[in-house]
Computed example of a mutant assay.
Amino acid sequence: MNLTGRTVLVTGGTRGVGRALTRQLIGLGAHVVAVGRDPGHLADLTAEYGDRVSAEVVDLADPDAVDAFGDGLPARHPGLGVVINNAGVQNLGDFLTGDPRDTRQVLRRELAVNLDAVITLSTGLLPHLRDQPSAAIVNISSGLAVVPKASAPVYCAAKSAVRTFTRALRYQCEEAAPHIRVMDAVLPLVDTDMTAGRGRGKISPAEAARAVVDGIRRDRAEILVGKARLLPALMRIAPSVGYRALRHG
């Protein structure tokens, strides 16, 4: 897929992997619609890239806000052809300590960002994408969708659901709208604010974004990045090793 001249939606486009995706896509000549919750971070993007980026303030944890954003997006950006659902949040916690009522709303917001917003935007924008000559939906998941870790059950569950949803949606598009490519990008541990102080062997956001963009251009249904490329084989050959290795990741 040639990304030059395309309009690309990037959720979570102001920080981490999303910011790197925005930078690299603009470098390829794309126009990026960057979604973020913080107006200040979005203002920094527009100051840096001018009219090559369109800033959209959306709280992806608010289903009503996501509905309104997705419903109005095609009118504002009729050339939209690529959707990258990148935004994600991860909350660490031990469900056997404390009062679960204290974390209930936090966990629901985590699910809303990591799963509900992905499904809402992917399905809600399909009628528009179907009218484009070519299009792509790229959902960013994680190696933790394949092998979960103990400290973030809700994040792992949401990313696993994203992978399953993406594959099933790909099947539908292959049959009814083959010009819409549906891709799953599986990332390893990336050095972002979300992973600060945790883990070793991280890759940079720029490296992760480069692999995702390369996968889109090469029309890969599954984009396995860095160490995540090892997971499918490892889980076939020695799943106990994989579970043990990432349990406390």
Rank of each mutant, 00 (worst) to 15 (best):
V106C: 00
G5M: 08
R108A: 15
E48F: 03
T22L: 12
F69E: 01
V106T: 15
V32Y: 12
G81Q: 03
I237V: 15
S122C: 11
V32I: 09
T195M: 13
L230N: 01
V154I: 14
T123D: 06
L21M: 12
A61G: 15
H179Q: 14
A245I: 08
L125K: 08
L92V: 04
G79Q: 14
E174I: 02
E48S: 11
R52F: 00
K227H: 00
Y243P: 01
L224R: 14
A30F: 08
K149H: 09
G242E: 05
V8S: 10
L42E: 01
R218M: 02
I140C: 08
L96W: 13
G226T: 03
L189G: 10
G50E: 01
L25C: 10
V186D: 04
F69K: 03
D131S: 15
E110G: 01
T103W: 11
V162N: 07
V118P: 09
V118I: 13
D193R: 12
G197R: 12
G16Y: 12
S204Y: 03
L107K: 09
V190N: 11
G226S: 08
N139H: 12
D184F: 10
C156H: 10
I84C: 08
V82P: 02
T4Y: 04
R15P: 00
S204C: 00
A145I: 06
R130H: 10
A55I: 04
I26Y: 09
M235S: 02
M194D: 04
A43R: 05
D71E: 13
A221R: 05
C156A: 13
H31A: 04
R52C: 04
M235T: 10
L231N: 01
G27V: 01
G143W: 05
K149E: 10
A43E: 10
I203F: 12
V58D: 01
R181E: 05
Y171Q: 12
H41I: 00
